[in-house]
Amino acid sequence: MTIEPVYTISSKASGGGRDGEVVSASGQIDLDLRMPKEMGGSGEGTNPEELFSAGYAACFLGALRATSKQAGNPVPDESTVKVTVGIGKDPSDGGFGLTVGIEVYIPGVDEAKARELAEKAHEFCPYSKATRGNIDHKVTVVV
Rank of each mutant, 00 (worst) to 15 (best):
G86K: 00
D19R: 08
S68D: 13
G16E: 07
E49C: 14
G62W: 09
G62Y: 09
M39F: 05
F52Q: 11
Q70P: 03
Y56C: 13
E78L: 07
D19T: 11
T67S: 07
N73T: 14
G88K: 01
N73V: 13
G15E: 06
D77G: 07
T80Q: 07
D32K: 10
E78G: 05
K69R: 13
V81A: 03
Q28I: 01
T46Q: 10
I87K: 02
K37P: 01
D32F: 01
G62L: 07
S68N: 11
F60R: 13
D19W: 00
S14L: 00
G16Q: 05
C59A: 12
T67H: 04
G27M: 08
K89E: 04
A71L: 10
S68T: 14
C59V: 12
V83G: 01
A63E: 14
G16Y: 04
N47I: 05
K82W: 00
L31W: 02
S14V: 03
V81L: 02
V75C: 04
K69V: 10
M35A: 15
Y56N: 14
S24P: 05
S79D: 04
G40C: 08
E38V: 09
V22E: 11
R18W: 07
Q70G: 04
S42H: 06
G72P: 04
E21C: 09
V75N: 05
M39R: 01
S53K: 14
E50H: 12
S26P: 11
G27Q: 11
L64T: 15
G27C: 11
G55K: 12
L64E: 15
T67D: 07
L31T: 01
L51N: 11
K37F: 00
N73W: 02
V83N: 01
S42L: 06
S24F: 02
V75F: 01
F60K: 13
S26A: 12
L51T: 09
S79H: 06
T84H: 00
K69A: 15
K89G: 02
G40W: 01
P48I: 05
E44W: 08
G86V: 03
G55E: 13
L33M: 11
R34L: 03
T67W: 06
G43L: 09
L31Q: 06
L51E: 09
V23Q: 10
T67C: 04
D19L: 09
P36H: 02
E44R: 15
G62I: 09
S53Q: 14
E78A: 15
K82E: 07
A58V: 14
K69L: 13
M35F: 15
E50Q: 15
L64G: 14
K69C: 06
S68Y: 08
K89L: 09
A54H: 12
V85N: 01
G62T: 11
A71F: 06
S26M: 05
G86R: 02
E78C: 05
E21G: 07
F60Y: 15
A66R: 10
P48E: 05
I29N: 06
V81E: 03
Y56F: 15
T80G: 00
E44Y: 12
L61D: 14
G88Q: 01
G15Q: 08
V83L: 00
A57N: 13
L33D: 05
V23E: 08
T84R: 00
K89H: 02
E44I: 05
L31D: 02
E44A: 14
G55P: 12
G88L: 02
A57W: 09
S14D: 04
T67A: 04
G20M: 08
K69N: 13
S14T: 12
N73P: 03
